[in-house]
């Protein structure tokens, strides 16, 4: 099932591209928490999340 895995990873890359770019960032950029913009936290959180998702997609057994 290499093809499926491939398609999922491409989808993940596209999702990450959307989440980590405008206009999504413009929405996030408005939010402020305790006087500090949450943008840096958002970026790192999403970044970490997509890496985790990629790891899960690649490492889970039984699909090849």
């Amino acid at each position: 099932m290499l093809e499926r895995r491939l398609a999922r990873l491409v989808a993940l890359a596209l999702t990450a591209l959307v989440l980590l770019n405008f206009p999504t960032l413009a929405l996030v950029d408005r939010a402020v928490l305790g006087g500090v913009p949450i943008l840096p936290f958002y970026l790192f959180a999403v970044w970490g999340a997509v890496i985790g998702l990629a790891a899960w997609l690649i490492e889970r057994p039984g699909e090849d």
Binding site: L9, V10, L12, A13, A16, L39, W47, V50, A54
Partner: peptide
């Protein structure tokens, strides 16, 4: 956070490694 695109780009590329 202007330094980040330089690392986000390769992250996206890495997801395309398998393909």
């Amino acid at each position: 956070v202007g330094f980040l695109p330089v690392y986000l780009g390769p992250t996206l590329l890495a997801f395309l490694f398998v393909g």
